[in-house]
């Protein structure tokens, strides 16, 4: 990364989509940063991978649909999206059907990702 680059930010999302307001809050931070053209990467880790389940229908509980919000990430130019491979496997999540295209990482891969970014924002 050259000195002229903007600071790169990694947002780490570790919360299930509807168990608390933290999932939504972490995505709002990511979208706000992206709207201001900060280079942003997103990592779904631990329970955060549950946000990647296809066919969420949160209208049934009167809450905004996180799955559908995730499909808008490319419009925010958030293209670098990563997922904790072990967590996805643990929950049996079919990443090929996820609302957003992700790159799977193992533990050392996640460590490297964090090291590559200037700032890490964990939720």
């Amino acid at each position: 990364m050259g000195a002229v680059d903007k600071k790169s930010v990694l947002v780490v999302v570790r919360r299930s989509p509807y168990g608390s307001s933290l999932a939504r809050a972490s995505l709002d931070v990511a979208l706000a940063a992206a709207a201001f053209e900060q280079p942003l990467r997103l990592l779904f880790m631990g329970d955060g991978v549950l946000q990647l389940l296809a066919k969420q229908e949160s209208e049934a509980i009167g809450v905004k649909n996180i799955g559908r919000l995730l499909t808008s990430l490319p419009l925010y130019d958030i293209e670098r999206v990563y997922v904790d491979a072990a967590a996805a496997t643990r929950y049996g999540i079919d990443l090929s059907n996820a609302p957003v295209t992700t790159q799977a990482l193992d533990g050392p891969g996640i460590h490297q990702l964090m090291t590559d970014c200037d700032h890490v924002l964990g939720f």
């Binding site: 570790r14 631990g46 329970d47 904790d84 533990g107 996640i110 460590h111 964090m114 090291t115 890490v120």
Partner: peptide, 21 residues
């Protein structure tokens, strides 16, 4: 490299996720 802070117990998701990285 990275400073990790952990404020949940070994039975938690925070502990598991931290150890992974």
């Amino acid at each position: 490299v990275i400073l990790h802070t952990l404020n949940t117990s070994p039975g938690s998701a925070g502990f598991t996720d931290c150890l992974r990285v």
